[in-house]
Structures are given as structure tokens and as C-alpha cells.
Write a protein that binds this DNA or RNA. Structure first.
Lengths: 342, 342
DNA sequence: CTGAAAGCGCTTACAG
DNA sequence: CTGAAAGCGCTTACAG
């Protein structure tokens, strides 16, 4: 069980430890033959780099993060997760630099950020996609430059990447349905609100929900709110008046506040119940007032932590990870609500 | 923002870095005056030890773990959490040694284990209490020898310790009640099963449940199973026959299998529903059969991880932690059940 | 392409 | 009680 070090490999092959180190860490300046020899004996001896010694001696690892500037409750939590990990890893010489995107409908700022990080020789990139995905080939270019990319928050339907860290949307939908069945009386109907059908995690939530909510004839419809509070309010209002049989709404995006507001203003607290998505302070009122019965929470802070942790481990160990790292949704109730606000 | 190192402190005071190191890490062989001076300037300069450099140079940190040998599904998960943390911290020179207790009703083996670890100069102790708490003064003796103790899994009503890592039992009971209200029809009654009233986390669960389950006249009673499957089966059987109005049972300990078995054997699946505690493979059948509607999960693996992490951070940073670190309970449903088995 | 040497920030025997 | 020196296991400029 004695630890195997670079020195052991060097002695085994009668070369210097500098050469061994360069070969193992993928640096240039080692002949291909030498490198393959070193890698082979490293494997044979069961070598694993000592992160502690490495962290003390190597240059700072630089991670570039690209994320939308809007919706701070959402993207801010990803950032918070990244910062928590970084704080836990002080002394390890890792740092993150951020680039923000203001316009979610064009790809210009994404491309600009990618090029900037390319120029700055970042060791890895974390990228949070939004509506527009047409910058995918630039993600590929990072990959070609041996800069690993972790996609965070929702999937990118193209582009080579190390992995994608996101919620398990199908399961989120299923859990919402399981609870909905308990709280909605048999004679009542329900509706589903999403942001936009074209976003894969939105449609996955619908699929999961429909799949589990066996009483499908009791689903009035799926409505797109475009993540716009006014649209959500308007649709809710219309449903309340047109459909007196409405008993519940599964709000599958973070856009639940205006839905609750509308229900309360129409004094429908006892008639229309909400299963919401994502947690924020302002929801507390509606949880206490019993409009919101449950919240599907997909730990965005944990997602941020996992994204940078995975990237770091890849950079240090060259360990390949799962291509898709899915966070398990949690159900928040009235009683444990406050624990999730920190 | 330049990093402050031992060298900076040494230069500031015109002493050697060895003296600085000894003073900071609490080693003997430094005059009290020198030590207090060094600590003062360390604070003034904003010094924080570099764990990476320290991990590379110091002797191995030895943690002693004392836990019951029985109920491997339960205590095994604590151990697993400890092992996960240790694996994550290889290269940091930490190791754990385990001592197991077979008889939970006497304190002999606890005392023996404590004395053994004292003799072996362990740097810290993790201790999982069981029924008998009469060894508390031995925990104090560890404390007097400057060996920090973390209590894991349930509280110890005496004894000086660094902290206690455990579930939030009151909240667990409340969450069980919140779900129970949804799934039990208004005309049905419910019962609560615990292991033993004298165990604080069992009685806390009852209190939490009662507090939240507003329809208290619908609670038939609280029954002690002594964590014995046969007793649990017997009580369930008796209730089914004596109390046709029984609609649900909150099983507040891990002892839910024989309760489910009894319900199934009596073909009462549609009439009596369970909210269970803790997850294990054999429960899956009853979740699928719709007897178990929800499970309150209190991540024992996470508890183990937190216990050793807290201890390590205290040993390295001398950071004092919260005296009580409570894990937030999670509600497991049919759809996400499999995700919690790993 | 290869290697000798310095250095990362600590701790720890050992000598004084 | 105090300090000089070696060492933990790596990486990295630099020289050859």
C-alpha cells in the first residue's frame, strides 16, 4: 500500500522526475515514445497524482464562466455554487472569471465571451445556455483547443463538451404529478404552464408530468408563458373565469409568483392549488396561504458546485465523467420551506 | 490580496518560521509570551493556514470512530459517508479507525473503545450513541485531553463535545404529517409507531407530527415497537382488526417493513397507507404496491460526511462549528425512490 | 528532447 | 525555549 510517486516512476525508467511530470501532465517537450513509456509504467505501478502536492506547486487553474446576466435568482445560484466550491478549494490555486450575456436571443455575446476566454488561455469553461444555441460550433472550437467545456443548467443540443450538469426534468414533472394527484379532488381539472415548448427541459417536464398524471382527461392544457409574468397572470386569469372546474396548476418554470397573485386576487385560494418550480423568498406568502402546496426544487447551487468540481477533477486527473450529470429534484413542503432559502 | 504565510509572520516578529509554526498549531515548546505574540500578529496580518501545504507536510491525522455493530443499513450508511469523505481527501493524510459496539444496552464497550483511542493518541473521535448513555463522563475525559468528539446520528444528553450531527427530527415529523393530511380521507384515523419514547429523536418526531397534524382527534395513538419487527407486525395486525377506521400509519423509525407486510397479508393495501422513515431496497415492493406513499429520508451518508468534515476542519483550523448540525429531511415519493438507493 | 535545481507553504525531528 | 535544515510530492522556468 505504499504510495507511488513520480520518483518511483522515474527510478523505474531511469529518467528524471521532470520528464515524468511533463509526460503525465500532458505538457509538450517529451518525445511520444518517452511519454507512452511513462504512462505505461505509471499505470503499471498504480500511480495517482497527489493533488495536494500538485496544488501547491502548479500554476493557477483558470476557469472561465459564461452566463446570462438576467434572472439573478436563477443564474446567481449557479454562481453561488461555483463560489462555494472555490472557497472550499482555496489553497488549491483555482480561480474563476465571469463573462455575462445580456441578450438571450442572439449569440453574439456568447461568441465574444468564448473568443475572449480562448485568448486568455483559460484551462476550462463553464457555459450556461439560454434561448439561442447557434454558437455551437464555437464550443467545438474550444474543444479542439483542448479546453474542456461543462454545460450548466440546461442542455445544448449540439457542440462537443465534457459533460452537462442539469436538473432531471422528466423526473421533476413526474414528482409534480404524483403530488398533484393527492391534492386535487377527482372532479377537478388541472393545467400546466411552461416557458417555451422549444426548450428541452420545459418539454421534458411536461412529458414527465403527463406520463405520471394518469387522469389525462383531467388536464385542460399546456400553456406557454414565455417566462413573462404578465402573460402568466393573463392566462391564469382567463382560465379562472373560463374554466370553473380548474383545481390546480403545475407551474413548470420559475414563473409562479404572478400565477399565485392572480389566484389570490380572485379569492380562489381554496379552489386552485399550485405545484411550483424553484424557490424564492416571495413565494413564502403563498405557501403560508396554502395556494402553493409543493415546490419542485432542483438545487441550482449544487449544480454550480458540481459543474466546477467535475471540471477541476477532469483537469487534474483527466478523469472522464458521465456525459450527463442529472440533479435529483426535491419536493419542498410548507414545513421545510424556510430551510431552502438559506 | 497577497497571501499571508508563516514567513510573513516570522519576518514581522524577527523569529524563525519553525517557532511560528509551532505556536500556530498549538504544539508545545514555545513560551506563552511568544505564542500569544505570534497569534496576535497572525490575526493582525489575516493569516490562514494553507491546508494544502500543511496536508503535505504534517503527520497523519487519526480519527477514531465508535459505532454499533448492528443495523448495518443504518450505521453502515454513516460509515459509508465517512469513507466517501476520506476518499475525497486522499493526499491529505487523514485516516479513520473503527471500534464496534455489540451490546447496545450496556456501556462497557463504549468505555473500552474510548480508552483504547485515548491510548492510541487519536486526534479526534466520532461517536454514534445507542440506548445506553451512562458513559458520558468518559466523553468528558476525551475533551479534557483535548481530543474533540463529534456525536453522530442522535444526541447524547450529556458529555462535552465539539458538536452533534443528526437529523432534524421535529421537522421530519411535521413533514410526515403534512403529507399524511393529503393522503388520508377525512373520515379515517391514523396511528404513529416509534421505537422507544425515551430516545429523544423518536419523541421529537412524535411531537413534530402531532404539532402539524391538526386533526388530532383522528390520531388513534402512539405505539412503541422497540424497533422489533415482530412487535411492529403484531401491533399493526391488532390495529387492523380492532380499528376498521384506521387509514394510515406514520412509522417514525426504520422499522416499516413488517408493518407493510402485515398490511399486504391482510389485503388492506387500499385502506391503510404508510409514511415511512429511512430507505432500503426491500421497501421498493411496497412503494410500487402503493402501500408506502412517502418516505422521510435523512441522508445518513451525508451525516457521516459532515461529521468527519467538521472534525477535520476543527483540527486544522481550530474553527468552532455549530453545536448542533441538523440535516434537513427529504420526502421520497414513488417516482424518485430509485434515485435514493444508489 | 531531457534533466538539475528551485520553489510552493507548511511541519518536524534535531541541535543548540 | 528557539532556530536551521530537511522533507512532503509535485511543477516549472532554465540550461544543456
Amino acid at each position: 500500500m505504499k504510495k507511488v510517486t513520480v520518483k518511483d516512476i522515474a527510478e523505474e525508467l531511469n529518467v528524471s522526475i521532470s520528464t515524468v511530470s511533463k509526460a503525465l501532465s500532458g505538457k509538450s517537450g517529451v518525445s511520444e515514445e518517452m511519454r507512452s513509456n511513462i504512462l505505461k509504467t505509471a499505470k503499471k505501478l498504480g500511480y495517482h497524482v497527489n493533488r495536494v502536492a500538485q496544488g501547491l506547486s502548479r500554476k493557477t487553474i483558470k476557469i472561465g464562466v459564461i452566463m446570462p446576466k438576467v434572472w439573478n435568482e436563477f443564474y446567481g445560484a449557479f454562481k453561488k455554487g461555483i463560489e462555494i466550491y472555490l472557497k472550499d478549494m482555496v489553497d488549491f490555486n483555482i480561480e474563476a472569471r465571469y463573462k455575462y450575456v445580456s441578450n438571450l436571443y442572439t449569440c453574439d455575446e456568447y461568441i465574444e465571451a468564448i473568443n475572449y476566454f480562448l485568448k486568455e488561455n483559460m484551462n476550462g469553461i463553464i457555459l450556461c445556455p439560454s434561448y439561442n444555441n447557434s454558437y455551437c460550433k464555437y464550443v467545438d472550437s474550444l474543444n479542439e483547443n483542448n479546453i474542456p467545456v461543462v454545460i450548466l443548467g440546461s442542455d445544448l443540443p449540439c457542440g462537443k463538451r465534457l459533460c452537462c450538469v442539469r436538473e432531471d426534468s422528466i423526473l421533476a414533472g413526474k414528482m409534480a404529478a404524483e403530488v398533484m394527484k393527492w391534492i386535487i379532488p377527482k372532479n377537478k381539472k388541472i393545467a400546466v404552464f411552461i416557458g417555451n415548448k422549444d426548450m428541452s427541459d420545459h418539454s421534458e417536464k411536461v412529458n414527465g408530468f403527463m406520463n405520471e398524471y394518469a387522469r389525462l382527461d383531467e388536464v385542460i392544457g399546456v400553456y406557454e408563458t414565455q417566462d413573462d409574468p404578465d402573460v402568466a397572470y393573463h392566462i391564469t386569469n382567463k382560465l379562472i373565469f373560463d374554466r370553473p372546474e380548474l383545481g390546480g396548476i403545475y407551474v413548470a418554470t420559475g414563473n409562479s409568483l404572478s400565477v399565485c397573485k392572480c389566484i389570490e386576487e380572485n379569492n380562489m385560494n381554496d379552489n386552485v392549488n399550485i405545484i411550483a418550480t424553484d424557490i424564492f423568498l416571495e413565494l413564502e406568502k403563498y405557501v403560508i396561504d396554502n395556494i402553493v402546496k409543493g415546490i419542485i426544487f432542483q438545487d441550482p447551487i449544487l449544480q454550480g458546485e458540481l459543474a466546477i468540481k467535475t471540471l477541476y477533477k477532469y483537469l487534474v486527473f483527466k478523469d472522464y465523467c458521465e456525459p450527463n450529470i442529472l440533479i435529483r429534484p426535491q419536493l419542498i413542503l410548507k414545513n421545510n420551506f424556510s430551510l431552502y432559502l438559506d
